[in-house]
Structure formats: structure tokens, C-alpha cells
Design a protein around this nucleic acid. Structure first.
Lengths: 113, 113
DNA sequence: CTGTATCCCTTAAGATACTG
DNA sequence: CAGTATCTTAAGGGATACAG
């Protein structure tokens, strides 16, 4: 979300959309569970604050990756889910996630010692 | 490079290693050209400052993704190339780069209007 | 329950000047 | 040529309190 507009390459654009600490984690949670309320989402993304969760969700929504569904009732109920477009991004993220999974240990150890 | 250590998932770890504005662009330049001197790399990554280029290269080197070769001579000559490990990361980035390439226009337009 | 509104701190990044 | 050093700004993120 650097908003530095016209990108030097596709990766640049993709990281602008999914970069930062939380967005990819939010997408993964939605991919796994399909449809989550705000509070559920907060529990599925450990460590995130309410402020960051709302903020990142709004940006994901603005970029058309996430759908927000408000059920008019008391107490409030809002559900979030991935759009089809969001699903294509999520698929593109799979190899990167697998790479991280495979090499996490190596990276951490290398940095420690 | 948030250094928040033990990750919540692989994607988290991968983005820690390749996140930020420049690292992926540097990797791509090295993947394309194979081996580049500092000055060549600076020209291949448009807009980057010397400070950022050095800083990001040092981190990529520390993580074992990039190899730094100093040729002891005057004037100085230092060449950078991707390690085999770096190449595996680069491959994992391809789908994401392609996604960005395909959807760049859509993203930009949506944000504009 | 689903958010807003502040305040504050840390980090990322940019500009510029200088050195072996 | 390949960096260092320093300063400044911009952005990301966190803590806490509060509201509909």
C-alpha cells in the first residue's frame, strides 16, 4: 500500500497489494475458514489489534480482494469472505508460503548464529 | 526483516525475507542478468539509492540468498549473484509476479476511480 | 459485537555529502 | 567504483480508551 503507483514490475504491484505484516495472514485465514466474523478473524490472526484488523480489511476490501457483509441486527454481525479475485491472489501466494514453510528453520537458525 | 522471529506461517517467514520495497526487485535483476556489479545493479533497479541498495544487499547476503564477490583490485570491483537458495525463492515468487502483471491495470484503475 | 479516535513509538525509506 | 555517514521525513504499527 505504498501507493507509489505505476510499478516497475508485477511483483512490485503484488507486494503493494498484499505487503505489510498482516494482509497475507488475513487472506489465509479467510481461505481456510471461508467466512468469518470480525471477532473470529481477530482470533484467527493472533497478535493483531482491532485497529490494524479493521484498517487492513478496509484496504483489502477497497482492492476487491475481500467481501464485507453487514447483517443489520443487534448485536452487530459482520462477515468477511474472500472474493474470487482474492482467491486468485491467494493461489499465487501458495508457492511463497510453501517456500517459507520449508525454509523457516534455516532462516531463523542462520540469523541466530 | 521485521525480525519478529518465530512465524505464524510460512508466508509470514517468506515475506520477512523478501518483503519491503526493494528486495524482490534486486532478486529479479540478478535472476535476469546472472551476475552484476554494484553500479550495474543500481542501474537495473531504477530509483534505488546507494544506501538502500547496500543495505538490502547486505540483508539478502546475510540470509544466504545473494552471493557477494570482491575482486581485490583498483578501482574496486564487486559482483553480486544469486545463490542456489536464492534461486528457489525467486521461483516461488514467479506466480506472484505473474499475478501482479495480469492485474496491475485493474488495481491501479480501481484505486484511481 | 464491531468498530472509532488518539497518541506514541519504531522502522522504512529518501536526500545529500563524503571516503578508500 | 563501491561504498559510509548523517540527517530528515514518511509510513507502519501498537496501546489504550471509548462509542453505536
Amino acid at each position: 500500500m505504498t501507493a507509489h503507483g505505476p510499478y516497475s514490475c508485477g511483483l512490485d504491484a503484488a507486494l503493494d497489494v498484499v505487503g505489510g505484516k498482516w494482509k497475507s495472514l488475513i487472506l489465509w485465514a479467510l481461505a481456510e475458514h471461508g467466512r468469518l466474523r470480525f471477532g473470529e478473524l481477530r482470533r484467527e490472526v493472533p497478535g493483531i489489534t482491532e485497529k490494524m484488523l479493521v484498517q487492513q480489511l478496509r484496504q483489502l476490501e477497497a482492492d476487491g480482494l475481500v467481501d464485507r457483509e453487514v447483517h443489520q441486527q443487534v448485536p452487530p454481525k459482520v462477515e468477511y469472505s474472500m472474493t474470487d479475485f482474492g482467491a486468485t491472489l491467494n493461489e499465487a501466494l501458495v508457492p511463497l508460503g510453501e517456500w517459507g514453510e520449508r525454509n523457516m528453520r534455516r532462516i531463523v537458525e542462520r540469523r541466530a548464529g
